[in-house]
Design a protein around this nucleic acid. Sequence first.
RNA 1: GGAGGGGUUCCCGAGCGGUCAAAGGGAGCAGACUGUAAAUCUGUCGGCUCAGCCUACGGAGGUUCGAACCCUCCCCCCUCCA
Length: 429
Amino acid sequence: MKNVYDVFLERGFIEQVTDETEVRKALEKPLTCYIGFDPTATSLHIGSLVPIMALVHLQRNGHRPIALVGAGTALIGDPSGKTEMRQVLSRETIDFNAQCLRKQFSRYLDFEDQKALMLNNADWLTNLNYIGFLRDIGRHFSVNKMLAAESYKIRLEKGLSFIEFNYMLLQAYDFLHLFQNHECVMQMGGNDQWGNMLAGVDLIRRIEGKTAQSMTFPLFTTATGQKMGKTEKGTIWLDPEMTSPYDYYQYWINTDDADVGKFLALFTFLPMEEVNQAKSLSDKELNMAKAILAFEATRITHGEDAAIVAWQASVAAFGEKVMDPSLMPSSAIPRGQVAKEASAIPSITKTWDELAQGIPAYELVYECGLCSSKGEARRLIAQGGGYMNDEPIPAFDALISTDHLDGDGHIRLRKGKKKYMIVKVEEKK
RNA sequence: GGAGGGGUUCCCGAGCGGUCAAAGGGAGCAGACUGUAAAUCUGUCGGCUCAGCCUACGGAGGUUCGAACCCUCCCCCCUCCA
């Protein structure tokens, strides 16, 4: 079997490693490796997908991943690379979030028979005794060194409170705790965590006299320099209640050209030989590759059924697309003719009577959520960016009524090129 | 605790008594061009019952016909000193 290290390497997961040869060697045998996740919301978002995929790769290759929910450390807030102190969340909120994340992880990892573990650092951190902690752990840390750390630099200019300054000690302690109690010898995480992770490796060396390893992932931004998973609609969450599978799919299909290959490697399990095809694609074919990326990514997070519905909805909204069967054949995306299925396109329902009277276009555009204010809706339509059934809406106050229903009893509203909304009507009584 | 400097619209940042919903930039949105991408150019960019009105310049008061701009108190941030 291939060494996971090489899988990580060829798929672009690696930014820094403590010791490349040692890590590769260690990964020849099953080992335990952890990644921490912050329970700052009830769902993870696309930003956490790289670490999640890394855990899945580990498990698939016979290792034991630990997903560590940082309910304890979230009480402190990591100052690394942040310009300001983080909003402090209440204990209750954090605990609730931690519970939600547990469920979420089960979609990606198999927790049967301890094949993966999910732990919460509140279990050991909240019981620490202050004096004991200072004497056992605190004495191993040099303030001089910490002050020099890159991750604190920004904050030294703007102010760093003592509570945050301790974050590094706690994360290091986590690693030590997992090392001692769960034979965890490696930590992975985003590159912004490098300093905190090294602190853990260091602590293990000082206290246990043993070597642990860490590895960081690049912090991905899109080719346009945006953070992964942020759009004008807000964060792209992994929870289907918070971000619908259709929106999730659309996020991926809007990937920058330059990112398609990279993302296929990171966010799908397609074999690299097929992923590499993407590099030579352009125009229509590249768009197909984007559809495959979107489909596969949606499938991993929301399941195959949801992915198929999203793909059909996309076809319904943006037109027929027949998938070339030779393109990335490992993908489960349906090939050939695709049924158009509009049900995943967001919709609102009006009663027959309401619609029969006619509703001014800007009101309807606002009401269905395409625009966040009526003023914006007016401007949108006045500037020609509002469409009904693929025709520009002639005036902002043009009346939309039952006359505009199509054969399926739908009115399709569109904002710009990509944002669709369907207005349905209740059956006439 | 003391001295000084600050807090402006999503972000940065100008404004320092009326012409200020507030320059400029960034982000966002739309149009043109395209490939549901990028870049570029154009427009737009607080809300509404939209030629008018309402809400906004850390908070609360005050001066004034009129305040983001002046005064008082409070809160927060930064720098230096303890």
